[in-house]
Simulated assay, not measured.
Amino acid sequence: MIFTDSVTVSGVRRTADGYLVGEARVARTGIQDYLGTEIDPENEHGLRDKPIVRVYRPESAVFHQDAMQSYAYRPMTNGHPGGDGVNSKNWKDVAIGQTGGEVVRDGQFVKVPLVLMDAKAIEDWEAGKRELSMGYGAEVVFQDGVSPEGEPFDCYLGPMKMNHMSLEHRARGGDQLRFGDNTPTPPQGGHQMADTLRTVIVDGLSVQTTDQGAQAIDKLTKQLADAGVNIKTLTDAHAAALALKDADLAKKDAEIDSLKAKQLSDADIDARVTARADLISKAKSIADADYTGKTDADIRKAVVIAKLGDAAVAGKADAYIDARFEILVEDAAKNPANDPFRQHMIQQDGKTVGDESEKARLQMIADMQTAHLPAQA
């Protein structure tokens, strides 16, 4: 994994060939701030979404013998090339200069000589792009702690191995890596050297910060916006769930009200029983049959069929059949002979009269048969 660090050029001069030559502090011990996506891009250690990860560089990482040797003769680039850094395949395309071989410790810093050779890169440097960012590899030990200076950190580095040095606008190390005292005289029409900061808008306010600070602010702003969207999504989902629940409750209330409306009172039941008995009575006055279990409509239809035949109801609507039934009822009311009660009474009366007549006839016969017999003494 290639990391990047930034340092400030110091003691710069121009050669007769137009190159820029000088010395630069290229690394230091202590705490440096990185983005979580730089240190833990796969989030294997839970640091990817952390805006700022504090990485400690102990002396054993910065001044290790192998590390000190790796600062020498590193290619310089105008911006980090990305990927795996600089190698023999892309060196010719990206190199704009290189570091020298005299690597020394300068307090808590490592200082190396360097030469900037590419004309376009020199123009960028003169226009203000004048700080250096090291591209290096190192083992990251994901263990938090506190540095000897009392500063907390999230992880620390093992021995560093340099790959390249990139010309950049801003240093990761901050103010202590400010541009050195010796500055070349810019060519006629050139730009005076001055520290520049990036301006970002935070909640309507203009804030000047480094590129790294701007990245952190942008990330935090996006996270806040995403959090707002997530909260709105959850709120909308909660409101929708409540609305659905209210709709279900309203539906159940309507069903309960409907069931209540369908419940019959005692008076309703009595009225229905009376109407049913009346219908069956009318039906029997026309066609005496068993109407148990039939609906009112079925009873009317059965009576019409019994009296008039199947053809009378074939293809007819219920309203027509009901009307034919009522006509038959009216006709039956006009003809007392169709009254089953009256017919029963007549049958009973006829049977009584017949029995009395038969008795009188038999008695007359008996009297006639005994009329010639002598009287008994």
Rank of each mutant, 00 (worst) to 15 (best):
D248T: 05
G190L: 05
K282T: 07
Y71S: 01
A119P: 02
G30K: 02
K92E: 12
L116C: 01
R57H: 09
Y19E: 13
Q32N: 06
D246H: 10
A366G: 15
A247F: 09
R105C: 01
D266I: 09
S147A: 04
V86P: 01
D33Q: 06
S206V: 13
K301V: 03
S265W: 06
V303C: 09
Q376P: 12
R54N: 12
M364P: 04
D298Y: 10
Y156A: 01
G228H: 14
V273W: 08
D211A: 13
T183E: 03
R172P: 00
G22R: 11
G30Q: 04
Y56N: 03
M368Q: 15
E330G: 14
G36S: 03
M1G: 07
G213E: 08
P187D: 11
T221F: 05
H344P: 04
I96R: 04
G83C: 09
I201V: 14
D318T: 15
D296G: 14
K245V: 03
V329S: 15
K161H: 10
G158P: 11
A138M: 02
I96F: 02
P374L: 14
V26M: 05
D106V: 01
K111E: 11
R342H: 11
S70I: 02
R272T: 13
T183R: 07
D367V: 12
N78W: 06
L114T: 00
Q369D: 14
R342F: 13
A360C: 13
H80F: 09
N163P: 00
Q176R: 07
F325M: 12
P336R: 08
M162G: 02
G82K: 10
G85A: 08
I96C: 02
D248W: 06
T221K: 12
I299V: 15
T196Y: 06
T185G: 06
L114N: 01
H80S: 12
P336Y: 08
G30T: 03
G18K: 03
N163Y: 01
F109C: 02
G158E: 02
L279T: 07
Y291M: 06
D367E: 15
